[in-house]
Amino acid sequence: MTTETSGSLKVIYAAIAANLGIAVSKFIVAGITGSAAMMAEGIHSAVDTGNELLLLIGEHNSVKPADAKHPFGYGKELYFWALIVAMSVFSLGGGLSIYHGYEALRHPEPLQDPTWNYVVLGVSALFEGYSWNVSRKALNERRKPGASLWQTMRASKDASVFTVFIEDSAALLGLAIAALGIVLGHALDNPYLDPAASVLIGLLLVGAAFTLARETGGLLVGESIGADATRRVRDVFEKDPAILCVAELQSMQLGPDEVLLTASVQFRRGMRIDEVEAAIERLEKTVAALYPSIRHIYFESGALRSAMG
């Protein structure tokens, strides 16, 4: 197990522990007080708990060794399950919260003592904040100087970490919306504000689901390592004495810490086979030192023919 995988599992386990306890407490209080916003929050936390279990499946499957059927390994399994999580957040989290809020708006429950709602919301904020902070620290480990946390999340290739981060960010905002709906509902003696908060929480989750789907979908269909990283790798090739020119470099993310790179380059003409082999080995070591995640480099056959022509 790599250090990155270990860090991802830590983030997932922290999220499971937080969401499971929160979901149970929210459902109990929602049943006692009849709060639609609290019921929406309970649904949200229950869905998040299930989602983290799906991410564990993805983490487990993604580290299986390569075989004849999958010669580049199973790294994209994680992206597949992260996409399933996005669909779950959209349908179960967002959809059920909106539906429950809509039904409560049609038939609002009489206002009851909100004390336990506030207690659970406060405790939930502490647990969610802890889980969010674990995922934030994991993202910060790869944060480039001057980059915002949002930019770091967008650039991350570790679906487990950025999925938990997005879910927990939505959860914290959802708690704030639920608290505001309950407070205003009792302050104004208006039973419609609580279920309205439930609808808003559902819309928030739909937005989080679309963000997750966009990030994981790009990785699943074959996202590159990015323009900046590609430019640095190109510099490595162009500075090597065996390379005359670099026509094209193409990369694809195979997993959080595994990248495939293909190189269309022109070697110096007249090189012996042992010189070409030495140049390739030198380039592979230099690129690996710069970006350890680039584990596979393939050279276009035309480049090799021109070198020994």
Rank of each mutant, 00 (worst) to 15 (best):
A30M: 10
I57G: 00
D48C: 12
I43N: 07
S35L: 12
N61D: 04
H44V: 05
V47I: 13
E41T: 08
A36R: 14
S45Q: 11
L56W: 02
E41R: 11
G50K: 13
L55V: 09
G34I: 02
E52H: 14
I32E: 10
A30Y: 06
A30Q: 01
I57D: 05
G58F: 03
L54W: 12
T49W: 07
A46W: 00
I57C: 12
I43H: 06
G58S: 08
G31M: 06
T49M: 13
E41C: 00
M38Q: 09
L54A: 09
V47T: 15
M38K: 08
I43P: 00
V47M: 14
N61V: 05
L55R: 12
N61W: 14
I43A: 01
I43Y: 08
I43M: 13
I43G: 01
N51R: 13
L53N: 01
T33H: 08
G50S: 03
E59P: 00
H60A: 02
G50A: 05
L55K: 07
T33V: 06
V47R: 13
S35C: 09
H44N: 07
I57T: 06
A36K: 05
G58I: 04
G50P: 14
L53A: 08
N51P: 15
I32S: 13
I43W: 14
L53E: 01
